[in-house]
């Protein structure tokens, strides 16, 4: 099982390694780690921690994308769940209520989008656009347009605490990714999701309840967004309805695609998508550390993203093969012609 699993994420691992090498070349201390005050400190730890929201979102996004869908609402759902958690804390409810309500809000958001897609047959991009636009209004409604700050150390621990020297958000995305992989691969859920994503009609004809599968993936995505919202809110000890999770859905989709998951649906890999999230964060952090002026960030990011995607493009792979074949033919013309003559 392991070799196949490693083989699947190999392109992403190589990409990550190349990026780390690039960043290290410009900023030699990138891989430096030191231990102080009971915590590991270093740029790599920073990447792992700051990458947490997108990594969490990428888990749910991968499942959604595997069904051939897309979830534009996750950034907004982060804002809603953060606002819900903060409002619950401010109102004097404890940690458990805050967490429970935030997760429930995420589930409800997923249920809403999932129902529009599975039962009304609305295209995923439009259905989740509805929540993406109106959700930020809902989050602002909850916080009444202000930044809701709170002081609850137990909750803040989820965003800025450490466990065994590693930041808690890192543990959270690791745990969420592992749990999701175990659930989808140890049950038949993963297979059914892939079947629906590849051919919904044929899947329905074999008796797969495609609607339930669709509902499930959007609810999982909502749940992941809720976790990401909790981490972000806990980290800054406040809910900012305007900016929490803003445009992170795009990063999450990008992470999923960099993870080699086709937007058309089908075979998926959560580990590859999570590595994709780390790739994006490495780019973001690397650009900063390398000392480029901040105004260059987006251009460099765009260039790197295009380069990664072009290299992964299946059509390009076909082109390269053809070019390679032509080159070999040019280099060894005689045997090739013979073979062609020999075959009818």
């Amino acid at each position: 099982m392991m070799p196949a699993g490693v083989k699947r994420v190999l392109p992403q691992l190589i990409t990550l390694a190349v990026l780390v090498a690039l960043v290290s070349a410009v900023f030699p201390d990138f891989l430096q780690l030191h231990y102080s005050d009971g915590r590991l400190i270093g740029p790599v730890i920073d990447v792992l921690k700051r990458g947490a929201p997108v990594a969490l979102l990428a888990i749910g996004m991968t499942l959604v994308v595997a069904t051939g869908g897309i979830d534009l609402s996750v950034g907004t759902v982060m804002a809603i769940t953060g606002a819900v958690a903060a409002a619950a804390i401010v109102a004097g409810h404890g940690l458990l209520w805050a967490l429970g309500l935030a997760l429930a809000a995420g589930l409800c958001a997923g249920l809403f989008s999932g129902c529009l897609i599975a039962f009304l047959g609305i295209q995923p991009i439009v259905a989740t656009l509805i929540l993406m636009i109106s959700g930020r209004g809902i989050a602002q409604l909850i916080t009444e347009g202000r930044i809701l700050t709170f002081n609850l150390p137990a909750f803040s621990f989820l965003g800025s605490g450490h466990l065994l020297g590693i930041p808690v958000p890192v543990w959270l995305w690791l745990a969420a990714a592992t749990l999701t992989v175990v659930v989808v691969r140890r049950t038949a859920l993963g297979l059914l999701i892939e079947a629906v994503g590849i051919n919904r009609r044929a899947s329905a004809l074999t008796g797969i309840n495609a609607r339930v599968i669709l509902l499930a993936v959007y609810m999982i995505s909502g749940l992941c967004a809720a976790l990401a919202g909790i981490v972000t809110t806990a980290d800054i000890r406040g809910a900012d309805a305007n900016n929490a999770g803003l445009w992170l859905e795009l990063d999450a989709i990008l992470a999923t695609v960099i993870g080699g998951n086709s937007l058309l649906g089908g075979r998926f890999s959560i580990p590859a998508a999570v590595i994709g999230a780390l790739i994006i964060q490495t780019i973001n952090t690397g650009i900063l550390l390398a000392g480029f002026p901040t105004e260059y960030n987006l251009v460099i990011k765009a260039a790197l993203v295009v380069a990664i995607l072009v290299l992964q493009s299946p059509l390009l792979a076909g082109d390269l093969k053809r070019v390679a074949a032509r080159l070999t033919r040019l280099r060894h013309p005689a045997p090739a012609t013979k073979k062609e003559r020999a075959s009818p």
Binding site: L131, I133, S134, G135, G137, Q140, L141, E144, A241
Partner: peptide, 13 residues
């Protein structure tokens, strides 16, 4: 409040 604009657009959509 301005957030009602967003909610209204979402509902309209």
């Amino acid at each position: 409040s301005s957030w009602w604009t967003k909610i209204a657009i979402g509902v309209l959509l």
